[in-house]
């Protein structure tokens, strides 16, 4: 009887969005009289930070600091339609809609600035700090604050824009299954290292090294939040979680957090996260949806590591101590 070590690897990809259902999202952007920008959506922030990311996307596109943008979501009386937050679609779909709306608003903003500065709009640029400058002659400038005031009270222009992003639905061909499930895919590779106690069947995940390719990390700290939390959930799925421990038997289902098991703060694997960026062709600033796929590769990586450690395959999730012990027993020469 001993503690045995093993390691396993898994590599995966994951589609962004819901192409097989038709996948629209809209956004509206407008400026306030003092040059702040309001993004109006009906998209839902589940905790992943959608409001913040949409603010950064809008700010980047208009050319203002992020703190000049307020995101108003989700209210069906004011926010235009969004399919919803699922299928790793939020950042990608809503982000594209926000970019389109923000571009339209930016164009009006530049036109008003052009009138004030008596130049062509195409000769103007933003400095990212709240000013509009004449290209090549930055001493000729106007603040976005003043442009918005002028638009509202002098020139009668609405600095606003509408955005719509739609991936049309893909219908699978009946016989061949030809279809377009996604326009872009995120990728990952995870190496997990485990210890298995072959007397108790208990598995300890020592380390997980996760490499994720996510298109573009729009806000690296928030990407890290998602990936660390997802990696934890993947390990949790691998070793602990189910509502029906003896599926398909319907009994013994947990009804609270004492019976439904997940790793607690004392059960954490040492977790390393490395991010690669291959910008997607159609993503907002190249982003893909990393929120779901980040919890997938740990499951097979842990399963493979368990085999590497004790030489038994557990092909049924979750990989509980009971299943490991039964497999070890079955494998033992009497």
């Amino acid at each position: 009887m001993a503690i045995r070590r093993g390691r396993g690897v898994a590599a995966i990809n994951y589609p962004t969005g819901m192409n097989l259902g038709g996948d629209p999202t809209q956004a509206l952007v407008h400026s306030t009289p003092t040059g702040n920008f309001m993004v109006t959506l009906s998209s839902v922030d589940l905790g992943q930070g959608m409001k913040q990311i949409m603010a950064q996307i809008c700010a980047e596109t208009i050319g203002v600091p992020t703190d000049r943008v307020v995101v108003d979501t989700a209210d069906t009386d004011t926010g235009p339609h969004c399919m919803g937050t699922f299928a790793s679609r939020g950042t990608h779909r809503a982000g594209n809609a926000v970019i389109q709306a923000a571009r339209e608003a930016r164009q009006v903003m530049l036109e008003v600035a052009a009138e004030e500065l008596e130049v062509n709009a195409s000769d103007l640029e933003t400095d990212g700090e709240g000013n509009i400058l004449v290209k090549g002659a930055p001493q000729r400038s106007i603040s976005i604050f003043d442009v918005a005031l002028s638009a509202h009270f002098k020139r009668g222009r609405s600095i606003s824009g509408r955005g719509m992003f739609l991936i049309p639905r893909s219908y699978p061909e009946k016989e061949t299954g030809a279809m377009k499930p996604s326009t872009c895919y995120a990728h990952a590779c995870t190496v997990a290292e485990v210890e298995v106690d072959d007397e108790t069947g208990e598995v300890t995940v020592l380390t997980v090294k996760n490499v994720f390719e996510i298109g573009r990390a729009l806000n690296p700290k928030m990407v890290e939040q998602q990936l660390v939390g997802g990696s934890w959930m993947g390990i949790s799925h691998a070793l602990y979680e189910t509502t029906e421990p003896y599926y398909p038997n319907r009994d013994h289902g947990g009804t609270d957090f004492n019976q439904y098991l997940m790793p607690g703060p004392g059960d954490l694997a040492q977790t390393e996260i490395i991010v690669l960026e291959r910008p997607s062709a159609d993503g907002p600033y190249g982003a893909k949806g990393p929120g779901e796929m980040c919890a997938n590769p740990q499951i097979p990586a842990v399963a493979n590591a368990v085999f590497d450690a004790v030489g038994v395959r557990i092909d049924t999730l979750p990989i509980t101590p009971e299943r490991i012990l039964r497999a070890l027993k079955a494998q033992a020469p009497n």
Binding site: Q225, V228, G229, W232, M233, M262, G264, P265, L268, T271
Partner: peptide
């Protein structure tokens, strides 16, 4: 359920 505890 979100953070994986380590940041906390």
């Amino acid at each position: 359920r979100c953070t994986g505890y380590e940041p906390i």
